[in-house]
């Protein structure tokens, strides 16, 4: 549905987007994840025809954006960053303006507005002036203008930024409900959001794609081991020799001593093996008082930090293969 090839955009000496290549399939929800200033917004502005790329091509629904901007834009719904809206209009008159701008046939306009109002839960504020609405409502008005008339492709730039947790949940739910009906590309710098809402995540940094995959795949592929946190009451015995015997354990490290005297250890294990029961049995057999045993898969957060803070050879290879493959 969305095909981006070798996209680049320079502002002066800065390359905001630098050789970005990716595809989004029809009906897919893809999260564009990256730290602030990674080039997400610029990439989205190019995808929606607000900016022209310095290099590369964008095809949406098989049409080249540069050659047929109006045609492509007529199947796009776009929520820009920071949700710009006409503050002196009422919600209703704004949505009427939007359906006219999008060129919806006259007989479909009423229904399209009704549907968007219902989806975004705007009934209560239909007649209110946008400038006087709360941030949460404004965000929903922004979302309503994007998805009005059911465009084939939705491009949402940070759809949940600046909202409170309940509103964030509502918006995420709304986006999840659109799954399958529309192709969605959304950007975020919040990791749980990307993993919760999207089918696939594209991680970009400094304008380049550094990794792509489902949230689970990324976590699986990019962390070498599994972490295990063990808390025991001090028994005078050394834990290391006991635990080392368990197959699959790679290392053990004493972390801290708690207020109530408990000792915490971090154990790294081979991720293909579940060592939890083995460790528990070994400790209990030696009479060690086991207080807590907790395993933690390396979170997407760790993956993300790893990807954007250092030059990871794995990630570079990943980006390279995805560039050639797609």
């Amino acid at each position: 549905m969305i095909e981006v090839h070798d996209l680049a955009k320079s502002f002066g000496k800065i390359r905001a987007v630098d050789g970005l290549t990716f595809n989004v399939q029809e009906g897919e929800i893809v999260g564009l994840l990256g730290p602030n200033g990674a080039g997400k917004t610029t990439a989205m502005r190019i995808l929606t025809g607000f900016l022209t790329p310095t290099e590369g091509t964008v095809r949406i629904n098989g049409l080249d954006m540069l050659k047929f901007p109006r045609k492509v834009q007529s199947i796009l719904g776009y929520l820009p960053e920071d949700v710009p809206l006409y503050k002196d209009m009422t919600v209703e008159s704004f949505l009427k303006f939007v359906v006219r701008m999008k060129g919806l046939p006259i007989r479909k306009r009423r229904d399209a507005i009704g549907e968007a109002v219902e989806l975004c839960k705007l009934e209560d504020v239909r007649k209110r002036i946008i400038g006087k609405l709360s941030k949460g409502y404004r965000q929903r008005v922004g979302l309503a203008q994007a998805l009005i008339g059911r465009p084939k492709v939705l491009i949402l730039d940070e759809p949940t930024s600046g909202l409170d947790p309940r509103q964030i949940n509502e918006i995420r739910q709304l986006i999840r409900n659109l799954k399958g009906k529309q192709t969605i590309l959304l950007s975020t710098h919040i990791l749980p959001e990307a993993s919760m809402v999207s089918d696939r995540v594209l991680i970009i940094n400094k304008g380049k794609l550094v990794a792509t995959g489902t949230p689970k795949e990324l976590a699986d592929r990019l962390c070498s081991g599994q972490e295990l946190f063990v808390t025991v009451r001090p028994s005078g015995k050394l834990l290391a020799p006991l635990v080392d015997k368990v197959p699959g354990v790679l290392s053990i490290q004493r972390m801290s001593v708690g207020d109530d005297g408990v000792e915490r250890y971090k154990i790294i294990s081979d991720k293909s093996q579940d060592v939890r029961s083995g460790i528990a049995r070994a400790l209990v057999a030696e009479g060690v008082d086991l207080v807590e045993l907790r395993s933690e898969a390396m979170s997407l957060e760790d993956v993300f930090l790893k990807l954007v803070t250092q030059e990871d050879p794995f990630a570079a290879a990943e980006a390279e293969s995805s560039r050639g493959g797609n």
Binding site: G49, Q73, L76, Y86
Partner: peptide, 14 residues
């Protein structure tokens, strides 16, 4: 200033 130009120019309008 309000950023609505981005909204306006990403509608299918020239």
């Amino acid at each position: 200033k309000e950023g609505t130009l981005e909204l306006l120019l990403t509608y299918p309008v020239n």
